[in-house]
Write a protein that binds this DNA or RNA. Structure first.
Length: 226
DNA sequence: AATACTGGCAACCGCCAAGTA
DNA sequence: TTACTTGGCGGTTGCCAGTAT
């Protein structure tokens, strides 16, 4: 039945990691690789919860981390992906080599969100705030015109200023969400209605890229089931 | 110089899906 | 099928450094 508990909470350190702890964790993972996080702390001589070790490694100690300031291109990509995915930080992070979900989440909350708001863009909906208020009465064409007039946005996030309404905001992206089941399990007819499939590699024009193994052209390997 | 305020970020918490016995 | 653990995720908190008063 099941497995034994994750960690002995009474005997673990908390708070900031010390240099010694970092060194122990790095040394252990370099010698044994990333494996069972549960048993790692004991094996590595750490008084930490396995979860804490995993987080420390993934967010801070991993050698392939980029660190440093986000570039404008990264900012732009984050906004694009966020407009498609919402707060799916891990998926967004997967498209930004060397960046972690936590890092991106923090960057979003401290920088990008504010930047969008200062441009009059709702970071939740990625629409012009005044446009939103008027959305009910303004047609899509005029909304696009509002976007076009925002020269600042043009400079900061050029993609936000495409002469396209909604899904056509990103001419370089395929924003079409297809609705269908996993290919290996053909759905019953009644199941297909609310099942969505999307390949973000393809959507971003990155099909056949390193991170995309689906091999699809314009179709989809990230799957969401309703 | 002292204090209050603010922003940035590392780390924790709680939940959930998947895996296992 | 059920009960349980693990790994992973997103939200939140708390500390610290920098800035303003």
């Amino acid at each position: 039945m099941g497995r034994s508990p994750c960690c002995e909470k009474g005997h673990t350190n908390k708070g900031a990691w010390t240099r010694e702890e970092d060194e122990l964790l790095i040394a252990y993972i370099q010698a044994h690789g990333e494996g069972c996080w549960r048993s790692l702390p004991k094996a590595a001589g750490l008084l930490r919860c396995g979860k804490s070790c995993r987080l420390r490694w993934i967010n801070y100690l991993r050698p392939d981390l980029k660190r440093g300031n986000f570039t404008d291109e990264e900012d732009e990509l984050i906004v694009k992906l966020h407009s498609l995915l919402g707060n799916k930080w891990s998926i967004i992070a997967a498209r930004l080599p060397g960046r972690t979900d936590n890092e991106i989440k923090n960057h979003w909350n401290t920088h990008i969100k504010r930047k969008l708001l200062s441009r009059g863009i709702d970071p939740l909906t990625h629409r012009q705030i005044n446009e939103q208020a008027a959305t009910r009465s303004i047609d899509r064409a005029s909304s696009a015109a509002v976007l076009r007039q925002d020269a600042k946005t043009d400079n900061e996030f050029p993609y936000l200023n495409q002469n396209n309404p909604d899904g056509e905001k990103y001419p370089d992206l395929n924003l079409e969400l297809q609705i269908s089941p996993p290919s290996s399990h053909p759905p019953r007819k009644e199941e297909t209605t609310d099942i969505k499939i999307i390949c973000f590699c393809s959507s971003l024009g990155l099909q056949n890229s390193k991170g995309c193994t689906c091999g699809a052209v314009g179709i989809e390997h990230l799957r969401f089931y309703a």
